[in-house]
Design a protein around this nucleic acid. Structure first.
Length: 572
RNA sequence: CGGGGCGUAGCGCAGUCUGGUUAGCGCACUUGUUUUGGGAACAAGGGGUCGUGAGUUCGAAUCCCACCGCCCCGACCA
């Protein structure tokens, strides 16, 4: 490829819409162009990278026997109504009508389509297990698209689905997928961690996310350096910090707290530890009555855990001011469990408190020295808080650390959720009808590109890993259009590298060398050979490594052979 | 959906408060000359219904109203 003929549109400044470094660099490098909020055109250079990511994904999927197919992006409402997700998926599902006024949606995922396909085609245990995948553009009408391709509305995703006669078979394939995902992310040079995860709207039982570690990530990853434990904060179980409740030493006392509403304000005024106070949150219960959730003053509520409480309405809903006023006869800042006769659910840590501080259910007052079983009834005790840095891991073997992550992959054991909803059955060896076990497995192909750039950049631009780079090598001649020796040598090298199967671009644009060098840095091309008159006089050219930023002068005679070997070794 | 900000050439911005020449600057683009190993210099050019619509006014990028779009924070969603 000759740069003078290629679609290269680099810029010194990024549009002001970009916030993240990866987003800015992708715009500056001319990989993408925004068409509308969360909707991007992939320019040739960007698409070339996407294709390289797809290649690795395909190879790993094919290697574990998953078969590529392609499903429709536009899907009829019927199958979504059948699975129950036409209602449940919410506004993220972009709906539309055709000319006959029939309802359709743009596919945000393909459980319904693939399930419908398989139930029509697969009838016997002899056809199972079966694993299929596709790489396709998805559309999710995100409330707030942001960070360029990281949280776009339209994005490329690899989604795989597997069907099994029994759970053991599902687990076998789930583990194969898990390993294949690790292979994909390793080959693409990402620093990542697989973590235990919540199953969210997809539903099902077992689930792991693959999180690329980056400060700009929207998820919080809980892990430990001392053991293998890793989980999404949403799911991470918190262990109680002690085994039993201490002996009570105080009795209940009402104190005036005219303007102190938060736990911080109240404990500061009283001069006591924040960890001895209890925060009271009111949610709407399953019967539309208020339910009181208690967490320790220094903890935060885990809404995913709370959302799974059977006593609470689904989805989780905070009680209105009116409901609180009616049930507690006070403002939200003064609520407490004493005197409340509804359902009270306390976090494990709260269950282990004695002599705690809480609201008095009277405006302007709090209570101290409160004890369960004495001043109010014993609550239901469950895990509903977010873990904190320094907590013990659930296996007790290490201390918890937190970092941010970008979710680039997610594997689920769906079990029979969709088989049941959509009646996907097969006949077993005894001729008996059975529900299929299902798994589904996603990789955010375009998100990987954003995540990779987040991890691999410097002040000059992108630093692509070889397997993802738009080109493996760039030949940068000094004065290609003026110096004949330079032109002849640059052309000769270009032909040789090309013949050796290297993905090489010759930057023959009529620009000054400084401009060309800066562009090659911005684009993040791993290797660069600079051809200039000075070094040619010595029979040498300069090899630059984008990642190490090291330069070496190499003999013209041997550079092709050596660099080709080096690149071939580095490919994976 | 709530709060905040923005919309002027492909990109980055000034001008708007306080209405009044022909709407300006940098980058990018075109042509020429010089330059040529880290985003060159000089000169000459091209490119704008100032987001859209409707008002106020002798006169609107500037003031009023409505709408649209984009970004940030939150909520919602998962």
């Amino acid at each position: 490829m000759r740069a003078s003929k290629y679609y290269i549109v680099t810029a010194k400044e990024a549009p002001s819409e970009a916030e993240l470094i990866s987003h800015k660099l992708m715009l500056r490098a001319g990989l993408i162009k925004r068409l509308s909020s969360g909707i991007y055109t992939w320019l040739p250079m960007g698409l070339k990278i996407v294709r390289k990511i797809e290649r690795v994904v395909r190879e790993e999927m094919n290697a574990i026997g998953s078969m590529e197919m392609l499903m429709p992006a536009v899907q009829p409402a019927e199958i979504w109504q059948e699975s129950g997700r036409w209602e449940f998926y919410g506004k993220e599902l972009l709906r539309m009508k055709d000319r006959h006024e029939r309802d359709f949606c743009l596919g945000p995922t393909h459980e319904e389509v693939v399930t419908d396909t398989i139930r029509k085609d697969v009838k016997s245990y002899k056809q199972l297990p079966l694993s299929v995948y596709q790489i396709q553009t998805k559309f999710r009408d995100e409330v707030r698209p942001r960070f360029g391709v990281m949280r776009a509305r339209e994005f490329v995703m690899k989604d795989a689905y597997s069907f099994h006669a029994d759970y053991d078979s599902l687990v076998v394939h789930y583990n194969q997928m898990y390993q294949a995902y690790c292979n994909v992310f390793n080959r693409l040079g990402l620093k990542f961690r697989p973590v235990a995860a919540d199953t969210g709207s997809i539903g099902g039982t077992g689930s792991h996310e693959f999180q690329v570690l980056a400060d700009s990530g929207e998820d919080i990853v809980v892990y430990s350096d001392e053991c293998d434990y890793a989980a999404n904060l949403e799911l991470a179980e918190s262990l109680p910090s002690r085994s039993e409740r201490p002996q009570s030493k105080a009795s209940m006392l009402k104190v005036a707290t005219p303007t102190q509403k938060t736990c911080e304000e109240v404990t500061e005024m009283l001069g006591v530890d924040l960890a001895t106070s209890v925060k009271s949150l009111v949610f709407v219960g399953i019967d539309n009555k208020p339910v009181l959730l208690l967490i320790r003053g220094d903890d935060t509520l885990n809404e995913i855990k709370a959302g799974k409480l059977k006593q609470l309405k689904e989805p989780l809903e905070f009680a209105s001011q009116e409901m609180i006023k009616e049930a507690f006869n006070c403002q939200p800042g003064f609520i407490g469990p004493v005197g409340f006769d509804g359902v009270v659910i306390a976090d494990r840590e709260v269950g282990l408190l004695a002599d705690f501080v809480c609201g008095a259910n009277e405006d302007g007052y709090h209570l101290t020295g409160v004890n369960f079983g004495v001043d109010c009834k014993e609550p239901v005790v469950v895990d509903i808080r977010n873990v904190r840095e320094g907590d013990s891991t659930p296996d007790g073997k290490g201390k918890i650390k937190l970092c941010r992550g970008i979710e680039v992959g997610h594997v689920f054991q769906l079990r029979t959720k969709y088989s049941e909803a959509m009646n996907v059955t097969y006949l077993d060896q005894n001729g008996k009808s059975q529900l299929m076990e299902m798994g589904c497995y996603g990789i955010g192909v375009t998100r990987i590109l954003g995540a990779s750039i987040e991890q691999n950049n410097d002040e000059n631009g992108i630093v692509f890993p070889l397997n993802m780079a738009p080109f493996e090598l760039i030949i940068t001649p000094a004065n290609y259009n003026k110096s004949e020796v330079v032109r002849l040598e640059a052309d000769r090298l270009y032909d040789k590298f090309k013949a050796a199967g290297i993905d090489v671009i010759l930057d023959d644009r009529n620009e000054r060398i400084g401009f060309l060098l800066a562009d090659s840095e911005l684009l993040g091309i791993p290797y660069r050979v600079v051809v200039g008159e000075k070094t040619l006089l010595e029979g040498k050219v300069e090899l630059y490594n984008r990642k190490t930023r090291e330069t070496e002068l190499l003999e013209l005679d041997t550079i092709v052979q050596n660099l080709v070997r080096q690149i071939q070794n580095e490919r994976s």
